[in-house]
Simulated scan of single mutants.
Amino acid sequence: MKIAVLKETADGEKRVAATPETAKKFAALGATVAVESGAGEAAGFADGGYADAGASVGDRAAALAGADIVLGVQGPDASTLTGATPGAWLVASLNPVAERARIDGYAAAGIEALAMEWMPRITRAQSMDILSSQSNLSGYKAVLDAAAEYGRAFPMMMTAAGTVSAAKCFVMGVGVAGLQAIATARRLGAQVSATDVRSATKEQIQSLGAKPIFVEKVAGIEGEGAGGYAGEMSPEYQAAQAELVSGHIAKQDIVITTALIPGRAAPRLVTDAQVATMRPGSVIVDLAVEQGGNVEGSRPGEVVVRHGVKLVGHRNVPSRLAADSSALFSRNLYNFLSAFWDKEAGRPVLDAEIGDAIRLTQGGAVVHARLTA
């Protein structure tokens, strides 16, 4: 069983799908690991580290030649996978809906594509969940990005020259990224509040020392979607939420938005009119900017100033912490493959629950129900 680790080709992608640590673990399972030269360089993992871990290091063609499993962070074009074994697995984050043409390419090339972002959120798959591991770092980095753009200090400071008031930080969306954003902002000394459409998050917010901001007694507060994700709010709740947020956001110095609904455009949480109520010098970090944005006026890859407020819309936030995000991502992939490793077969064998959830293509066809409906 040969596992190939490729250098990422997407613009600005610094992560790598396997580190020397996981390469060594794959070798311990009995696999042969081949790494494309320079694959881990941008994340701080030198070729020598992979060689010391027992992997072979060479050009892309050498890495792919006879590969049974190809590991990636973002899905490469099918045309760049020439040389892999017919029926080889591609294990990566594949963005299946937006990149449908690429998925069709995998099918035509005979690649069995496995989308790690569609891993079901069940207990036994928690260690395989790339969305959670990467979102955790995104929430942390969002606060650091806000601090870098904000022209004032986060904590309250008492000096002989007077007192500096603590920054007020409002986190919208309390999933993995939101919870980490709350914790990080608190550690930096900000006064933190947060909101979500799921009422169950109130206790989570309070447990981190932040103030929950919720609409009460309006249908739609539960907001719990399938698989532990947030669902869509009722129109009544959306109206009540907008009114509550408008009053609260005008008093904030920092706003961090994290709301995403799988398979759909990001919900609009902050309008241009609400941005205009914030004082000049305030900062909004939109972690959903690449999926359409939670904030009106935010732009992918840019820091935009609207009404004196900075709207921060960095792309691929986990890649901006490439060493740690690669370490976590690669462990997710190892945990996934090792959990299904069949010693007798010398390869992983998926069960129906997880296989049906993440398998996009097989036998030359697109087979996932969400793509064939």
Score class of each variant (00 low, 15 high):
123 T>E: 06
123 T>F: 15
124 R>M: 05
124 R>Y: 13
124 R>V: 01
125 A>F: 14
125 A>G: 10
126 Q>T: 12
127 S>Y: 07
129 D>F: 09
129 D>L: 02
131 L>W: 07
133 S>F: 00
134 Q>Y: 03
134 Q>A: 14
135 S>A: 15
135 S>H: 07
136 N>W: 01
137 L>V: 14
137 L>A: 12
139 G>M: 03
140 Y>A: 01
140 Y>V: 04
141 K>T: 06
141 K>S: 12
142 A>E: 01
145 D>K: 08
146 A>S: 07
147 A>G: 04
149 E>D: 13
150 Y>R: 03
151 G>T: 03
152 R>V: 00
152 R>K: 15
153 A>G: 00
153 A>R: 09
154 F>E: 03
157 M>R: 09
158 M>G: 01
158 M>C: 09
160 A>D: 06
161 A>T: 14
163 T>K: 04
164 V>H: 12
164 V>F: 13
164 V>E: 04
164 V>N: 01
165 S>A: 13
166 A>D: 02
168 K>M: 05
170 F>N: 04
171 V>P: 00
171 V>Q: 02
171 V>M: 02
171 V>E: 03
172 M>S: 05
173 G>T: 11
173 G>A: 08
174 V>E: 07
176 V>F: 09
176 V>G: 06
176 V>R: 07
177 A>Q: 04
178 G>V: 06
179 L>V: 04
179 L>A: 12
180 Q>S: 15
181 A>I: 01
182 I>F: 04
182 I>Y: 02
182 I>G: 05
183 A>I: 03
183 A>G: 07
184 T>Q: 13
185 A>S: 11
185 A>F: 08
195 T>F: 13
196 D>Y: 11
198 R>K: 12
200 A>C: 10
202 K>E: 13
202 K>D: 11
203 E>N: 11
204 Q>R: 11
204 Q>D: 10
206 Q>A: 15
206 Q>T: 15
211 K>Y: 07
211 K>D: 09
212 P>E: 05
212 P>Q: 08
214 F>R: 03
214 F>Q: 09
215 V>D: 01
216 E>I: 08
216 E>S: 14
217 K>A: 15
217 K>V: 02
217 K>T: 07
219 A>Q: 14
220 G>Q: 08
221 I>H: 08
222 E>V: 15
223 G>Y: 12
223 G>I: 14
225 G>H: 13
226 A>Q: 15
227 G>F: 14
228 G>Q: 07
231 G>F: 06
231 G>P: 00
231 G>T: 09
233 M>C: 14
234 S>W: 08
235 P>R: 03
235 P>V: 05
236 E>I: 05
239 A>I: 04
242 A>R: 15
242 A>D: 14
243 E>H: 09
243 E>S: 08
244 L>P: 07
244 L>F: 14
245 V>Y: 10
247 G>A: 02
247 G>L: 01
247 G>W: 09
249 I>R: 02
249 I>Y: 05
250 A>L: 00
253 D>L: 07
255 V>K: 02
255 V>G: 03
255 V>S: 03
256 I>L: 10
258 T>P: 13
259 A>P: 12
260 L>C: 05
261 I>S: 06
262 P>K: 12
262 P>N: 13
263 G>V: 14
